[in-house]
Design a protein around this nucleic acid. Structure first.
Lengths: 234, 234
DNA sequence: CGACTTGTTGATGTACATCAAGGTACGTGG
DNA sequence: CCACGTACCTTGATGTACATCAACAAGTCG
């Protein structure tokens, strides 16, 4: 874990505390539901490996992805603070999770201010990303939204180590992009084809190649600029 | 402040700490910009009185409201954690703010775990609300979205003490609703007129009367259910 | 091998945006 | 007090970016 570049360095004191706080690791199969809407959870998780989505299913089948979740992200905080999930978390790939006991969350704040601070940092950062999604879905065209998502995924894949120079593999379908950005699959596909035709990128069966990053950035706009500060440990 | 029902009870220790942490109060005129996009801020605020919006202005004039902000809400956390605002905060009404020094944020976590915990709670709750907005804007019809906002505002006005039984005054225009829910003003107005015609509500110049709350709730769906837990002090 | 998932494409439909015009309240200066 | 501007709301006509429907192609999997 220490070797993973997406975590910040942490002190020995923090390390020993985290070791005590942690109750084990779990493996989850791709496609499984990690946390489910409407339920509570006795555990908190941080992602050690694998990708997930936080997703809201409406009763009539409509589906909105709230955000992707990557290694280093924290899962289940809402269930802990509000006694109930308001969305589900579903594994996109096989995952490895670090598990904590929920009742000890309060203990964490008392014993380790720095880790408490990190938690606030994570929650605030997640909120920042959701505000970006909201701006995109609310006020930007399909082309802008999709360029934004592509760059977002590219950035994340790079950090996670899935990406080569300009090409990367992702466990994401076009339907996922559509459900994140409030579009239909069909329209998403058409925009993607158009972008392909314009020489911006290639998307073939979960492999994406960026052909013209500058042009994509222009379309995506300043909101896509990475605010990728060093991420806290937890 | 203690008398305001939207804050939780707090201990004497917390009280004295907060008194020390606080550097003063500020009054802000309605319409003023409290925090501006792209800038940093040397201060953090909690809202003692008045309403605001957190809003993103795109270069071509498009405008997305990220959320409303009410008494008890915390402003400027993002600027503190990420050294830069990614949206502006604009006062809708005259406001009274409680001001803190940003460098002392870290001190807060060290001295008072309970207040640190509250901060995480607030950040997580804001994230929860943004996820609701995202689901609405991404996957629900104009009518659903607007019913959702009406009930949201009604709930907030009640807590803030602006609302009578079924009628309330708000410092919000139809344009604000449109910009929150990713709609045009014109279409928002048409839906509102239709709702009026259907006997659901009346909206006349910043005064709203709920005529049929059950029907509105049905349209708004379960997402509008208030998750209104007791709010922490800070 | 069929069943299923994912991607692709064209035809058609519609929920929304945009444009244009006017109406009502309220403020402000003469 | 009136003339004027301005902010907000209202309504109809027109346009379009998107959704929906339908069909098929190409993997992939048990």
């Amino acid at each position: 874990m220490r070797s993973n570049a997406s975590f910040r360095a942490f002190s020995d004191a923090e390390l020993s505390f985290v070791q005590g706080f942690k109750t084990g690791e779990v493996d989850v199969k791709g496609g499984a539901t990690v946390l489910s809407d409407g339920h509570d959870s006795a555990h908190l998780f941080t992602i050690l490996d694998g990708w997930a989505v936080r997703v809201k299913h409406l009763d009539d089948g409509r589906r909105q992805i709230i955000n992707f979740a990557f290694p280093g992200d924290f899962l289940g905080l809402q269930a802990s603070l509000f006694d109930r999930m308001e969305h589900s978390v579903e594994a996109l790939t096989d995952m490895r999770l670090c598990m904590f006991e929920r009742p000890r969350l309060w203990e964490l704040f008392q014993s380790s201010p720095s880790l408490g601070f990190d938690l606030t940092w994570l929650a605030s950062r997640e909120e920042l990303i959701l505000s970006h999604h909201l701006v995109n879905v609310g006020r930007r065209t399909a082309r802008e939204r999709i360029a934004y998502v592509i760059l977002l995924l590219f950035e994340r894949a790079r950090v996670t180590g899935l990406a080569a120079e300009k090409a990367f593999e992702i466990p994401i379908t076009q339907e996922d992009v559509a459900d994140l950005m409030g579009l239909s699959v069909v329209h998403t596909n058409k925009v993607l084809r158009q972008m392909h035709h314009d020489g911006l990128l290639t998307w073939t069966r979960s492999k994406i190649i960026i052909k013209n990053q500058d042009a994509l950035s222009d379309i995506a706009g300043p909101i896509a600029e990475s605010r990728d500060v060093l991420r806290p440990f937890i």
